[in-house]
Design a protein around this nucleic acid. Sequence first.
DNA 1: ATGATGTCCTGGGCGC
DNA 2: TGCGCCCAGGACATCA
Length: 276
Amino acid sequence: MPELPEVETTRRGLAPALEGAKIIRVIKRRDKIRILIPDDFEKRIEGRKVANIKRRAKYLQIYLDSDDVIICHLGMSGKFIVKKNDNEPFAKHDHIIFQTDSDDMVIYNDPRRFGLMTICHSSELEQHKLFRDMAAEPLGNEFNGEYLLEKLATRKTPIKTCLLDQKTVVGLGNIYVCEALNMTKISPTKMANEISAHEAEELVSAIRNILGRAIDAGGSSLKDFARTDGDLGYFQHQFAIYGREGEACRNDGCGGTVGRINQGGRSTFYCPECQK
DNA sequence: ATGATGTCCTGGGCGC
DNA sequence: TGCGCCCAGGACATCA
């Protein structure tokens, strides 16, 4: 379940194979992942050089020298594999393949097909419907206590649900929201509009801290991205609360037991003892 | 307008 | 062992 750190790690892993390379061939093995891949997708990419790769929220943006931008979301189970062309048959769920002039194969593999791949002109990117309503980047300067507090002030929904909303802040998924709430000892069921200015500041710090550490951890695994089949493991991070139902809460001196509730059809892991 | 719910999809884990 | 059931979840669509 790629959240911001995994997407950022993927961006850094793809850069050496793609930036500056010419994409000589695009193979589309199905017309649709989560949404339709445009009919002219291959035509707009083949023969173009990759200028650079950026990330916005959980999206990758691959800029081409034609000023077109490939937009990619990994969904739940999407990943990129980089390897030299070995003429092996494609694996199950290899949906889209980019072949470069250095004979690299950059393969998008996504078993659950919750991912997305499309293309648009760079001049239309900001107003693209995927991006236009997005909130600030959690690691950018715009995101601070004041910003978050203002976003939360009008929301009559649990803070857990609100932090998952990409209109509040982008890049967070179920795991990192649970972690941030546990770190700040805030109950996931507390209403967003009841979060104090102090709590908002604490949340911002926690979110920056946990995302930063996860990106660092991903960076240390980058060598694996280029090695062997280039498959990047997403689940190497150590989480304090996520998936630890029944275990002791790891917050200092807490002594509580990790519980699990359902919010909006998603599991929330939290400590009923210290998260108030 | 906002919040709540449904939807897409497959693999893995579990119970019987 | 094998079958069927349920769960995981990002973000959009749709409904109230």
